[in-house]
Nucleic acid binder design. Structure first.
Length: 457
RNA sequence: GGCUCGGUGGCAGAGUGGUGAUGCAGCGGAUUGCAAAUCCGUCUACGCCGGUUCGAUUCCGACCCGAGCCUCCA
């Protein structure tokens, strides 16, 4: 059995993964705040942790993977106001679109998908615990976490309270005892969504939901908590503070954070306005191509997003699918994924580029193989691909699927028939003219010993 | 200012104290009516300066450059 190694963001060390309960691995990944469409940067953690989910499922009998939906947030309130609708109109629309987009990327549904607004009681319970344990205080209608009450506050992100003061770039609210204190609960105006609470009508601070939902669904401590790098501080640091101080326990075994998708060397983000939504990219590329592109760099390294990246992802997938299509007559048998180099690569801190390199070796071997060997190699190639969440298409569909503007298959067949006729009569200029015509329409043809095949290019 | 992470061949991108990443592109060849696909062969590399070492791209230190967090953000 392969041994899984993961890099823990807390401390930055890679070590063997030891689940708290080998019979039941628990993972929580921060999901979207649903107020607009997901961009390709938002998709990276989804794809990365989906791959982790697949690896964990291969290694352990039971894996619970929770990914939350943040459906109460100031940005949502603003979006609802702009469109003159209720916040649930916004959150339901974009939660659904998020699910659709991520599913197009071959990402599996999480085991549970807790919504913040359905866990307000649990959040208020946590706020109460924190106050009674002197880790939080009420001031001016707010409930605030007292960062000085936690000796190792800052451990996850590697910061010290003193350093944070020096770099404070934002005006500190007067009701905070310490500038680093963060909001657990805040008052709502009459025209803002809110819930009644012992502290008055209000709504939760950003970090509270994850702490409360993790506790309710997964328990005091979980194995893995993931998200994008930018969540390390303040979000995860503060979550950790709330959970450790409110519930006790160690909270998270391994923290994992993916690096960003960059645009021209700069982070892609909503605030920079340089985003490309998954939905718009899906008009030009298959979800599998987008997924493969996202996995082409290691999750802890920045990934520069470009047309070249997507085009090369697509042609690489084409070459894999060609190898599969050319062996369509070969039956693949069940392959023990755990004994393949692809899986070994994934077990080494999700080394997807190395896993892809192993896929290339298998595809090359399959192209060269003959006889019984082909069955074994094809099985390994397929199993490796499934671990990465690719090869979901039937190889012949992969090459024949097209947008509305492509040539109909019947037209292609007709032209190929005419070309075969011309070739038989050694009328090569006519044959080549037909080939040029098909090429111009985005159809590549290949003459083989057993006839001519075609594919969309 | 504080903290973090990186700089590998034309490009993408792994990895390692001492022969091979891998892919794309290029070049040569096989194959093909010509192509396409495939296969074979082949060229480019480890930011800069020191140190440790028999030996460093890999370890240590300085420097240069880039990115990120410290504010909503995957």
């Amino acid at each position: 059995m392969s041994k899984l190694f993961l890099t823990n963001s807390e401390g930055g060390v890679k070590s063997a993964f030891e689940p708290l309960d080998p019979e039941h691995v628990r993972v929580y990944v921060c999901g979207p705040t649903v107020y607009n469409l997901a961009h390709i940067g938002n998709a990276r953690p989804v794809v990365v942790f989906d791959t982790l989910f697949r690896v964990l499922q291969a290694l352990y009998p039971r894996v619970t993977y929770a990914r939350n939906i943040t459906d109460i947030d100031d940005k949502i309130i603003v979006a609802a106001r702009e469109r003159s609708v209720g916040i649930s109109d916004i959150t339901e629309e974009f939660a659904q679109k998020f699910r659709e987009d991520m599913s197009a990327l071959n990402s599996l549904s999480p085991t549970i998908e807790p919504h913040a607004t359905l866990h307000v009681d649990a959040m208020l319970d946590l706020a109460d615990r924190l106050i009674s344990r002197k880790h939080a205080y009420e001031a001016d209608g707010h409930v605030l976490f007292d960062v000085t009450s936690m000796p190792d506050y800052g451990k996850l992100s590697g910061r010290h309270l003193d350093d944070m003061l020096a770099g404070a770039r934002i005006e500190v609210a007067s009701y905070k005892r310490h500038p680093g204190d963060f909001v657990i609960w805040k008052p709502s105006l009459d025209d803002e969504p809110g819930w009644d609470s012992p502290f008055g009508r209000g709504r939760p601070g950003w970090h509270l939901e994850c702490s409360a939902m993790i506790h309710q669904h997964l328990g005091d401590a979980i194995d893995i908590h993931g998200g994008g790098r930018d969540l390390i501080f303040p979000h995860h640091e503060n979550e950790r503070a709330q959970s450790c101080c409110g519930y006790g326990g160690s909270f998270v075994g391994t923290w994992m954070h993916n690096a960003y998708v960059d645009m021209d060397g700069e982070k892609m983000s909503k605030s920079l306005g340089n985003v490309r939504t998954v939905r718009e990219l899906l008009e030009q590329y298959s979800g599998e191509t987008l997924r493969f592109a996202l996995l082409s760099a290691h999750y802890r390294s920045p990934l520069n997003f470009s047309k070249d990246l997507l085009d090369s992802a697509q042609s690489t997938l084409d070459s894999f699918y060609l190898a599969l299509r050319n062996t369509a007559d070969v039956d693949a048998d069940a392959c023990n994924i755990e004994q393949t180099p692809v899986f070994d690569a994934l077990c080494d801190d999700l080394n997807t580029p190395l896993a892809i390199a192993e896929l290339h070796k298998l595809a090359k071997a399959l192209n060269k193989a003959s006889g019984d060997e082909r069955e074994k190699i094809k099985s390994a190639l397929l199993a490796g691909g499934f671990a990465l969440g690719i090869f979901n298409a039937d190889p012949s569909d992969w090459f024949s699927d097209t947008g509305a503007d492509g040539l109909a298959e019947s037209v292609i067949a007709e032209l190929l028939g005419e070309r075969a006729h011309a070739k038989a009569n050694r009328d090569f200029s006519r044959a080549d003219a037909i080939r040029d015509e098909l090429n111009a329409a985005g159809v590549t043809i290949e003459d083989g010993p057993s006839g001519t095949t075609w594919r969309r290019s």
